[in-house]
Amino acid sequence: MGVESKITTKGQTTIPIEVREYLKVGAGDRIGYEFVDGKVVLVPKNRSALDFAGVLFEPDREPVSVEAMNEAIGESVSDRYERSHDRD
């Protein structure tokens, strides 16, 4: 069985300690709510960049330069801009 909490008349709730420990969040931290396949997922928002070190690592992938990343981001932004103006 999972954990649960009660919602007050003001729409507030206490996040159970088990959930806070699992998410590694505490007083003053921020959390986000994402809708995924008919469920709401709590997402910690106070993560350090170091928490994500290696998250995209794939052993056989060639390294990518910062310049190549910036170029790919620029192309994506440009494509989105063009698509948003095609709707007008």
Rank of each mutant, 00 (worst) to 15 (best):
G26E: 06
D51C: 03
S76H: 00
K6S: 04
N46Q: 05
M69N: 06
V64W: 05
K6R: 10
L50H: 10
Q12I: 12
L23G: 02
D86G: 12
E18T: 07
Q12W: 12
R30G: 01
G74S: 15
V66N: 07
Q12P: 04
P16I: 04
P44T: 04
V77K: 10
T13R: 03
H85C: 10
D51W: 01
T14Q: 11
V3C: 15
E82H: 15
F35C: 04
V19W: 01
F57Y: 15
S76V: 00
A27V: 06
V77E: 13
P63F: 13
Q12A: 12
E18Y: 05
D60F: 06
V77A: 13
R30V: 01
M1D: 06
P16R: 07
Y33G: 00
S78L: 10
A53Q: 07
V25G: 06
A53R: 13
E34K: 10
V40Q: 09
M69P: 01
R47T: 05
Y33V: 05
A27T: 02
E4D: 05
S78R: 09
N46I: 01
K39I: 04
A49L: 10
F57P: 03
D29P: 03
H85Y: 10
V40P: 00
K39W: 04
P63H: 14
E67N: 02
T9M: 07
A72L: 09
D79N: 13
V36H: 07
N46L: 02
M1H: 08
A68T: 07
F52H: 12
R87Q: 10
Y22N: 04
M69I: 11
A72D: 14
F52E: 14
G54C: 01
V66T: 12
P59C: 15
E58L: 08
F52W: 09
E4G: 09
I15Y: 06
E62N: 10
V40F: 07
G74R: 15
G74L: 13
I31M: 06
R87V: 11
V19T: 03
K39P: 01
R30S: 04
V41D: 05
S5R: 06
V40N: 03
E21F: 07
R80D: 15
D86Y: 07
E82L: 13
S84D: 15
P63L: 14
P63D: 05
D51P: 00
P44Y: 11
R83C: 01
T8G: 09
K45Q: 12
K45I: 02
K39V: 11
G32A: 05
K6N: 05
V43L: 05
E67M: 03
A49C: 09
N46H: 04
L42V: 06
A72S: 09
L50K: 08
V36R: 11
